[in-house]
Design a protein around this nucleic acid. Structure first.
Lengths: 227, 227
DNA sequence: GCGTACACCGTACGACGTACGCTGTACTAT
DNA sequence: ATAGTACAGCGTACGTCGTACGGTGTACGC
């Protein structure tokens, strides 16, 4: 059967690229639960089994999606203060992961890094090494910074509100009753304060990142002075 | 039908407690994929549908499991230097999460904190507040420390080896071919070095934690001096 | 004109979560 | 004693999932 190449829509037949892209779109818009081979096929005007010409299995599809996510993250630039460079880079990583929240748990259970994932890690490692960190310290820093991003996004996508208004709306109905002050005095104190002052995901992220970057800088300078 | 109370095995009929415990055992031993209502029922000598008398849905079952995991984490003690207390506490958290790796992605997609989860967060918040952190700074510290633990465990359970021997074994077959030095010079440099020196998950965790704790202590002292 | 390769699909199998309605037992009110 | 009610547990069935398998038609080399 010949491919229907009539429409103005992007229908250049199937391709691995198109399959992965559409899978990402489905996951972004309707969540990971909505991503089934049948639904993906339907979106692509194809049968479920046709997809298996481009991905070996659903697992491999997920691997590919994760790699596409890595490819979206800005790589560290080559010049500039390493802290500034990493700040920009990690902000981009957070951005991308928040935009594709399904990717975080996926990265966790996935062992096979794709080319984009490898290139990403290579670039970050390179940035730290060029800044003067030793190999061991680079490994430490790499771990710590990645932890912050992963952990932060994990927490951000978890919270059931996106904006300060959402938060204020939910507070009365859900949070305050849950956090009875007599049972959870400290939590409820914190909740009230944050509620009053507004809550900004980005500010929270930047603050933590700053603490870590400055601490690492101190270690870098100290070890450099010892050379 | 009367319950068969003959055997020496722990068979006190069904109960929410028993259902949750057995679900955890299944997930621990055979992974999250193996946790289905049918299999869980079989392990409990019951039909799948009987479980629905103790959990409203599989989602609620997962909520309960997550809360049991929180309950396993040691709470911070009341006295001692806050850094030492938190170090112990977070080490316990890492320990528990590595023992139940399925819990990490679960915590991510779960909005409803159970009593143990709330109590855990309350205790950590209390510890930081009593150490002298402001409400805002406590929130920051809480976020940062949690991120480290989550992110760290995310990375640890990801790595396909547990011990240094495992790593050495896999290295030749998998890592070194993957990390071609001409394409990924920095990564392969790091891999060789870490391989030669051995790799210790605990040391890596402790190092990063120390960096963060010391940085937070500096902030605490500085703000205390301003009072 | 024929053979082969390939893109694609329909069907089917065994798993899954769970809605529904049926059992048999235990307890309470009369 | 009897009837009524509540409840623990189960069997069956529906619609979903991933995917193995065996088609079917078109394109192209000989």
């Amino acid at each position: 059967m010949i491919e229907d190449v009539g429409g103005a829509e992007p229908l250049p037949g199937l391709s691995r690229e198109r399959v992965l892209r559409e899978a990402m779109r489905l996951a972004d818009e309707h969540g990971m639960d909505a991503l089934s081979m049948r639904k993906l096929g339907r979106v692509l005007d194809a049968g479920a089994m046709s997809l298996y010409h481009y991905v070996a299995s659903k697992e491999e599809l997920l691997d590919g999606m994760v790699d596409l996510v890595f490819a979206e993250i800005e790589l560290p630039t080559r010049e500039g203060d390493w802290r500034e460079v990493m700040r920009r880079q990690l902000a981009s990583a957070r951005d991308v992961l928040v935009r594709h929240p399904w990717a975080v748990p996926l990265m966790e259970s996935r062992t096979n890094a794709g080319p984009a994932g490898l290139q990403y890690r290579e670039a970050v490692t390179a940035c730290l090494r060029r800044a003067g960190f030793s190999i061991e310290m680079t490994a430490h820093a790499n771990w710590l910074l990645s932890s912050c991003v992963y952990g932060y996004v994990l927490q951000e996508v978890n919270l059931p509100f996106d904006t300060a208004e959402d938060l204020a709306e939910m507070a009365d109905e859900v949070y305050l009753p849950l956090l009875a002050p007599d049972r959870y005095p400290y939590l409820s104190e914190t909740a009230s304060t944050l509620l009053a002052g507004g809550y900004d995901h980005t500010a929270e992220f930047d603050f933590g990142l700053d603490v870590v970057l400055e601490a690492l800088e101190r270690l870098r300078v100290r070890s450099a002075g010892r050379d």
